[in-house]
Simulated assay, not measured.
Amino acid sequence: MIKLLKSAFLVGFLFISASLMSKDRDFSLSIGTSTAKTVNFEVLNAQNISLVIYNETYGEVFSEKVGTENSVTKSYNLENLAAGTYYLVAESDQKIEKYKINIGLNNTLDIEKTPFAEINKPEYTISGNMVKLHLSGVKSSANISVTDFSDTIYYNATKKAANGELDLTFDLSLKTSDKYIISVEEGGNVFNKIITLN
């Protein structure tokens, strides 16, 4: 049976500036000056970042994967796109940032310099059968569940976060299953992680 060993909240998470990274491994995206229908931006700490531009009408119109550069500068020419609202999404293993792009009827382009959505993904540390879950940026609470592939529920609870931080540790047993699914739902976003025990 699964045991919840610890439910602790971290205090003192500090945002110094929007241009600084909250953690050393998180990427930072800075929007540059856009001219005509070209979007210019720089990504710092670009470790395995996915960049996507999409429109709700046309779907994905551009995607790219950035490797292991410390800093990368990108320019996307959007002159072939119709007028409307588009979204630039940058995603790493730790977080997702979304920026709104408006292309006007007279070929003007306007991109918001700050993300309208920033989503922190759950982070996991696995040691043997012990799994630590960390979630930051929690607005109020998150629903966390642990199941196996037979849909047996081992844990299901809504946890409130203090100062936006949530930490849980699970003791998973090979006696009940060798694979578990940890599901985290927060702010309308759902993240599932498959944990395989050896």
Rank of each mutant, 00 (worst) to 15 (best):
E112I: 06
E112L: 02
K113V: 03
T114I: 15
T114H: 01
T114L: 08
A117H: 05
A117W: 09
A117G: 07
E118W: 15
I119K: 04
N120K: 13
N120F: 14
K121D: 02
P122H: 07
P122F: 00
P122T: 05
P122C: 01
P122A: 06
E123S: 14
Y124T: 00
Y124G: 01
T125W: 04
T125N: 11
T125D: 11
T125L: 02
I126V: 12
S127V: 14
S127T: 13
N129G: 03
M130F: 02
M130D: 12
M130I: 12
K132R: 10
K132W: 15
L133W: 15
L133M: 00
L133V: 03
L133E: 15
H134W: 14
L135D: 05
L135H: 00
L135W: 00
S136V: 10
S136Y: 13
V138R: 15
V138M: 08
V138L: 05
K139Q: 09
K139S: 08
S140F: 07
S140C: 07
S140Y: 07
S140K: 15
S141H: 06
S141D: 10
S141R: 09
S141P: 15
N143M: 09
I144S: 04
I144T: 05
S145T: 07
S145V: 14
T147F: 09
D148T: 05
S150D: 11
S150K: 11
S150A: 12
D151P: 15
D151A: 11
D151M: 07
D151T: 09
T152K: 07
I153S: 08
I153Y: 08
Y154D: 01
Y154T: 04
Y154R: 04
A157H: 14
T158W: 14
T158G: 13
K159Y: 05
K159R: 11
A162E: 15
A162T: 03
A162W: 15
N163H: 11
N163V: 11
G164Y: 07
L166Q: 08
L168D: 08
L168M: 09
L168N: 06
L168A: 08
T169Y: 11
T169W: 09
F170Q: 03
D171H: 04
D171K: 00
L172P: 05
S173A: 03
S173C: 01
L174D: 01
T176P: 01
T176E: 00
